[in-house]
Design a binder for these strands. Structure first.
Lengths: 374, 374
DNA sequence: GGAAGTTTTGAATCGTGAG
DNA sequence: TCTCACGATTCAAAACTTC
């Protein structure tokens, strides 16, 4: 039985044509996710309802009203309901995700701790928590607490050993050649981006497109399928379309769906050349060290040294190195052997002498790539 | 039996002289907390183990070794074990706290979601989550994730309706006359503040004093009792002593205790005049606007404006204002009248020109208080 | 002694793929 | 499932060294 189910799921996953791509599915997010095939989605972005402690009104996951809580039992009852709802949709999300897919969930202190605990309990592996610092948060009018100036996002893979997409180079480029940190600053959604109808905002918690832009750019590839089970007014869909990703949205409210469809129809995709600049260097052609020797960029017999000239090694005709202490092999192997280190990047460790200065052999690789790339 | 125990505890709570103030209690934090009387502590700051679950060894790109947290006290077999531990100490903390006390807990994504869920389940009421943005975090050496550049703190009262101390005015003053936000930036603990023995750090996760300074300043009054059940090298005790608060610490490791005792003994309390500037405005003597005029801080005839120079008003000799549109009266009355608003805090609404810049008249009140308080 | 350059280090869940 | 080769990867602050 299990075998059959697995077989069926695998078949569906291999036929993504059955996925309702670039569409909004109307209905309950758990029911709609159940109808999607297993392991079919590359990324999930979820902005679930907070539903807790707000305005004294409490709602169950099914939308029914919870009477005002007056004692501890009711309070626990409410948390339990919220937890059950959270675990139900997170479990479906886990089933739908490809094995190398990731999930993002956003929340505030009202719900994010419960969501995070559920994420861990369901076997997801948290990769980062990200803080969205609001440039222009609403002040605390009564002066009773700190200004609530941030929201929290959780980024998780399907499990501890799971692979995942992270466009490290794109993020570093976006952050002015420094590693992207876990704290991001964006203004809250307003201005022309904020959807309004008759002057009234369509959705109370519309997220800024810049936030989704960074998330999709960091964790998906062009053509990947992104699901948003709490679609709202479709920020995820609009940004996905712009970035050349496929999307699916689930939403219950007709007003939100109408606004989202209009918005996404108007969104303009970036052209392919713009998307191409976001590729990671891993997709660059690899250059073997030996190719540099073959092509005369470095003559056999040249002596290489580290920056402090503590160690040296000679370049041999086949692109291997030979050190005076007897170590032989690749630039990486000899580098790690002479240092007694577990690993070494030979490209940055070994240097050659040019015009009286030491340059890393990686510079030669870049020269070669520039000369040979079309 | 239970009744007797409660009776004893209640008695102890009414006789706080029995509290082991300004001392480190050696032993397990749960056992030691059980020995403390109920409702006896004004604030708890807790820096529990994070349950990091680190894998193998990590090396920097230059081959050097990363000194990770490998201590036994951070190891838990499963999430269930960690949760049981967390709920046990949080429950004792709840019993010990006064009804108007608050608790602070710090953690990272490894543990903070579990801690936060437990805090809510035990009946605490979360007031804020605070993000400590590290000015100089450790980079992600492998380029596999976002730089983990922050930690999260939870601030909670004993329950939804509980009162608590929040020195709003102190925080606003500390933040250059803007409301203190939920994201704080500090460097990690280093320099002369970092405790070392024979060149080796005494504790792997010593917290910066600036962090505790802000917390104690925000949420306690002079003389309040602060408990730290994971005392480590005593940052909480050192800052509490500096700020004129009483403290208690619980710690298992003798090495940490020895370092903490030496450190706290060397800490110098601020003198009372410095502490006085941190008082909340409610306990400050009120200053009438007219007193500032009387004392020459603002000359009659001076023009006041709002930040955007949309409205102006003239200072009269009796401390009342007069606006060109005909409104007369107190700084608050004229402020609300010109705006057509139901109310207005004239101290922050009206500004005067000084050195080419606009400053709120509240700044003059603060100057006056500093000059006249004993 | 001070300026300038070098080294060290911090709560870290830190590869991939062929054979 | 294990082993091995290949190869990709770091920021800010403080401490330390050199000139």
């Amino acid at each position: 039985m299990e075998k059959v189910v697995r077989g069926r799921r695998a078949t569906l996953a291999e036929t993504p044509a059955v996925l309702p791509l670039d569409q909004i599915l109307r209905g309950d997010c758990i029911a709609q996710m159940k109808a999607l095939p297993a392991k079919s989605v590359d990324m999930i972005f979820a902005d679930p309802p907070y539903n807790l402690q707000l305005g004294g009104e409490l709602f169950r996951p099914d939308g029914s009203h919870v009477d005002a809580v007056t004692d501890e039992w009711d309070k626990f009852d409410t948390f339990a309901h919220y937890d059950a709802f959270t675990r139900a949709w997170l479990a479906e999300a886990h089933r739908i995700l490809k094995d190398d897919g990731t999930i993002w969930v956003i929340g505030s202190y009202h719900n994010i701790f419960r969501v995070g605990a559920a994420v861990q309990d369901l076997g997801y592996w948290i990769l980062n928590d990200i803080v969205w610092r609001k440039a222009n948060p609403m002040p605390n009018f009564r002066g009773t607490r700190f200004t609530n100036a941030h929201e929290t996002l959780i980024w998780a893979s399907k499990g501890e050993k799971a692979k995942y997409t992270f466009n490290y180079r794109s993020m570093k480029t976006l952050n002015d050649e420094l590693q992207m940190r876990s704290d991001w600053e964006f203004p809250i959604c307003g201005g022309g981006e904020r959807l309004k109808k008759d002057g009234v905002k369509v959705h109370p918690t519309q997220k800024p497109e810049a936030l989704l832009y960074r998330i999709l750019l960091a964790c998906t590839k062009p053509g990947d399928v992104v699901l948003d089970p709490f679609f709202g007014t479709g920020t995820t869909g609009a940004v996905a379309k712009r970035l050349g990703r496929r999307w699916m949205g689930i939403e219950r409210e007709g007003d939100y769906i109408a606004a989202a469809e209009e918005r996404i129809a108007a969104a303009l995709p970036l052209d392919e050349s713009a998307l191409a600049t976001m590729q990671s260097p891993k997709s660059q052609p690899k250059v073997a060290f030996g190719v540099l020797v073959e092509n005369g960029y470095l003559a056999p017999g040249t002596m290489l040294v580290d920056t402090k000239r503590r160690w040296q090694a000679m370049v041999r005709a086949d692109g291997s190195l030979s050190s005076p202490c007897g170590a032989n092999g690749s630039i990486h192997k000899v580098g790690s052997t002479v240092q007694g280190a577990p690993a070494c990047n030979g490209w940055t460790f070994w240097h050659y002498e040019a015009e009286g200065a030491l340059k890393p052999i990686d510079a030669l690789r870049q020269t070669y790539l520039l000369a040979t790339q079309p």
